[in-house]
């Protein structure tokens, strides 16, 4: 089993953070994985993307051309990558920021009003964790909910350990707990 996940959005939306959390989850579960960020001169407000491959086999190329799962956090990302998703794949969108629905009919689309949900729970920057919670719900074999706290502890900055709790709350909200 090899699953390729492409996460894309604006810089500052926590694209790389979400990817790192998926990577640590896979590490804790003893899977093979690779995490590859886009890197460029652009930062906050520019485009950011992150390619995460999770596999039971050693990972070949870490570069993802046709993802199994696309997480699009803004419209330019959906416009750019929608066509690249494998038939039968999944697309998660932040429907608070992306007004149009997913046009593809050969993929499973999950429109999550992540930014609105994040604002409502008082953590407006954690739309990424809301989407992750939803992904965990839809793909329990790929990203099981168990150990999420352990993975969060690895990714959250040592200077702000209290953020782990807030992130966990956002994941739970996205999961529907």
């Amino acid at each position: 089993m090899t699953v390729q996940i492409l996460i894309a959005g604006f810089g500052g939306q926590g694209i790389l953070f979400l990817g790192k959390l998926l990577a640590y989850k896979a590490l804790i579960e003893g899977r093979e994985l690779s995490w590859l960020p886009s890197y460029g001169p652009e930062m906050r407000g520019g485009t950011a993307s992150c390619s995460v491959t999770i596999s039971t086999e050693p990972v070949g190329s870490p570069i993802i051309t046709n993802p199994d799962i696309l997480i699009a956090m803004n419209l330019p990302s959906l416009d750019r990558y929608e066509g690249s998703v494998k038939p039968g794949g999944m697309i998660f969108t932040d429907s608070s920021l992306i007004e149009r629905p997913v046009a593809r009919t050969d993929v499973k689309a999950f429109a999550v009003p992540a930014t609105r949900m994040a604002v409502e729970m008082g953590a407006p920057n954690l739309a990424n964790m809301i989407i992750l919670g939803n992904l965990m719900k839809q793909c329990p074999d790929l990203v099981p909910y168990e150990n999420v706290g352990e993975a969060l502890a690895k990714v959250v900055s040592a200077k702000h350990p209290e953020m782990a709790e807030v992130n966990l709350r956002a994941i739970k909200t996205g999961f529907g707990l």
Binding site: A23, E32, L33, S34, L36, P37, V59, P62
Partner: peptide
């Protein structure tokens, strides 16, 4: 190369 430098793996 840039990929090897930037990517994370176990």
């Amino acid at each position: 190369d840039g990929t090897m430098g930037q990517m994370m793996e176990p």
